Amino acid sequence: MNTTEERLVDALRSVGDTVSPEDVPPPRFTERRRAGARRPVLIAAAAAAAVIAGGAVAGGVLPSGHKDRRPVAASTGVRVALFLCTRQNRNDNCAGRDVTERQKADLNASLDTDRRVRDVVYVTKERHWEQFRARFKNTRPPALPTTSPESIPPMFIATVGRADVKAFMQFYLGRPGVDTVVIEGR
């Protein structure tokens, strides 16, 4: 296994250790997808998970305004990414529309007042795309030709206490403008 695969395996183990099946809501889609349409989405999802596992909060991310909170050591907190909606998302929550500025502002305000959140940053769509391109430029087969900048979502990355992860995920999953919520690997 290469480093990316190892990180993905670690991320999946982390999710398995933290979230049980009854904590995950049922899928919100009702229509069947075309077989050809899934490949770019799967590549983008895998790439996004790898970017998070590799440390998506490298330079170029914007703090969301949490002035009174200090970054938390990895041993005392879990980093959770809230991937926001793009037009490519087909779940009912996104309905094929990009997250609105109002939805981003509402999420930012909610994260800012959420006592479970110890630290949070906002990663723009453009910065997330730059990180994706840098990380996967040499992959075989190349991921870039099948992935477009429009399919890479903006995101919030929040650090929450280990005991609060399940409640945090349940609260934000399904909120307007949120496509999915993912726990970063340990």
Score class of each variant (00 low, 15 high):
V51I: 15
I52Q: 13
I52W: 11
I52Y: 12
A53E: 01
A53W: 00
G54H: 09
G54M: 06
G55F: 05
G55E: 08
G55A: 04
G55P: 06
A56R: 09
A56Q: 05
A56G: 14
A56S: 11
V57H: 00
V57W: 00
A58F: 09
A58E: 08
G59P: 01
V61I: 11
L62I: 11
P63L: 10
P63Q: 09
P63D: 10
S64W: 14
H66Y: 10
H66I: 13
K67A: 06
D68P: 03
D68S: 12
R69N: 02
R69W: 04
R69S: 08
R69T: 08
R70F: 07
R70L: 10
R70P: 04
V72P: 00
V72L: 02
V72Y: 00
A73D: 08
A73S: 07
A73T: 07
A73M: 08
A74G: 06
A74C: 05
S75H: 14
T76P: 11
T76M: 15
G77E: 09
G77D: 11
V78W: 05
V78P: 06
R79F: 03
R79V: 04
R79C: 03
V80W: 03
A81T: 02
L82F: 02
L82C: 02
F83W: 12
L84M: 09
C85N: 04
C85M: 02
C85L: 02
C85S: 00
T86Q: 05
R87T: 10
R87G: 10
N89P: 00
R90L: 15
R90G: 06
N91L: 07
N91C: 12
D92M: 11
D92Q: 11
D92Y: 07
D92V: 13
N93M: 13
N93I: 15
C94M: 02
A95R: 02
A95S: 05
A95Q: 01
A95D: 02
G96Y: 00
G96L: 01
R97W: 02
R97Y: 02
R97N: 03
R97E: 04
D98E: 07
V99M: 00
V99D: 00
E101L: 15
R102K: 14
R102M: 10
R102P: 05
Q103W: 15
Q103R: 15
Q103V: 15
K104Y: 05
K104E: 08
A105T: 11
A105N: 11
D106L: 15
N108A: 12
A109L: 09
A109H: 08
A109Q: 09
S110P: 04
S110Y: 09
L111D: 03
L111S: 02
L111H: 06
D112Y: 10
D112S: 11
D112T: 12
T113E: 01
D114C: 02
D114V: 04
D114K: 11
D114H: 03
D114N: 14
R115I: 15
R116N: 13
V117D: 03
V117C: 04
V117W: 10
V117R: 08
R118S: 06
D119H: 13
D119G: 07
D119R: 03
D119A: 08
V120W: 12
V120Q: 14
V121G: 01
Y122N: 04
Y122S: 03
Y122M: 07
Y122H: 09
V123M: 01
V123N: 00
V123W: 00
T124D: 13
T124E: 12
T124V: 13
T124H: 08
K125C: 14
E126Q: 10
E126A: 12
R127S: 06
R127V: 09
R127L: 08
R127F: 06
